[in-house]
């Protein structure tokens, strides 16, 4: 009897597991897999603006149009610049904040609570907040620079083609560095203090302890954080849309904004979908590259 139920058990267990997962699976297939597939199909058609049918099949024509368009390459360049600045700054500032908040000082609990505020703030609100913070007539950033004597008059950061992109990067970093800081701080808190103390007794200086103990300890968290940063970098829409809508000119027109324009301003569903496919592939490659890069270094 006991033997029979043992044999039946796992099979009934598996069926029970499948039953529990089935609703989520069905929802994700209908709401995620299907639209993803449809987007790929759209990208191969000249879809009418109404979107009521696929329209004529055009093969890779949408992609040919995109790859021969200077607008796309300009946008790709902006996206890449945005992504590099965003990933590097978010990770570095996040790590610096985590290491600082891992020290002992008065008011540490309050400081750790502060770290959470940018992360809890909606991306769009960060865009609105920074748009006005950097404003050329009522902005707080200008006020601070003026009070510090760094500038003599207000500067319209977001309508200046030279500063628009850096300021949007900074705004997005303000939020993402906090997310990185939260995860990295949690990682640092699990680092046994004895490791650092032993190294200190052996005469290791701050930099040696940082590069030989702290960084290797944080590697798994750093991989996760960096992959998140890369994905958010390529998929960022809200902050740019709220701050500049892609302007001035095309200086901040990242690919997600270009997709929005194609789909909903020019109502070119085929071309917009092809752009979306390209963006998805780029984000995927970006994420995988980071994972590869880190793991390869680990092997050495």
């Amino acid at each position: 009897m006991a033997g029979a139920t043992d044999l039946l058990g796992p099979k009934a267990d598996r069926a029970f597991g499948l039953k529990l997962v089935a609703p989520a699976m069905i929802i994700l297939i209908v709401l995620l897999a299907l639209p993803t597939l449809l987007t790929v199909v759209y990208s191969l058609h000249d879809v009418p603006a109404s979107g009521s049918s696929f329209g004529p099949f055009v093969g890779i024509e949408n992609f040919t149009i995109i790859f021969s368009s200077p607008v796309f390459w300009r946008s790709a360049q902006v996206t890449l610049t945005f992504a590099i600045g965003f990933v590097v700054l978010s990770t570095v500032i996040g790590l610096a904040m985590a290491m600082l908040l891992n020290q002992r000082f008065i008011g540490r609990g309050l400081a750790r609570a502060l770290l959470i505020i940018p992360w809890a703030t909606p991306w769009l609100v960060i865009g609105i907040l920074w748009k006005w913070f950097a404003d050329g007539s009522v902005g707080g950033l200008n006020a601070v620079l003026m009070m510090l004597g760094l500038t003599s008059d207000y500067h319209p950061f977001l309508s200046d083609p030279n500063t628009a992109l850096p300021i949007t990067v900074l705004a997005a970093v303000w939020r993402q560095a906090s997310f990185a800081g939260i995860l990295l701080l949690a990682g640092l808190q699990t680092l046994p203090e004895e490791l650092n103390e032993a190294a200190q007794l052996d005469g290791a200086n701050w930099w040696q302890r940082f590069s030989n103990i702290t960084l290797p300890w944080l590697r798994p968290v750093l991989i996760t954080v960096t992959v998140f940063n890369v994905i958010y970098a390529f998929l960022q829409f809200d902050v740019v849309f709220a701050m500049t809508q892609g302007g001035p000119g095309d200086t901040t027109q990242v690919l997600s904004v270009l997709i929005y324009r194609q789909l909903f301003v020019n109502t070119n569903i085929g071309l917009g979908s092809a752009l979306a496919v390209i963006l998805g592939v780029v984000a995927l490659i970006g994420g995988l590259t980071i994972v590869r890069l880190f793991y390869r270094r680990e092997m050495h």
Partner: peptide, 30 residues
């Protein structure tokens, strides 16, 4: 279900759930 009663394909499903974080939501709004 995934944690306690894994079935054939459970791991693959879990990995594809993680992979969906990379799908641009903007891309599939059409």
């Amino acid at each position: 279900g995934l944690s306690r009663y894994p079935f054939r394909g459970a791991r693959a499903f879990e990995l594809s759930v993680i992979a969906t974080r990379i799908v641009p939501a903007i891309a599939i709004i059409g």
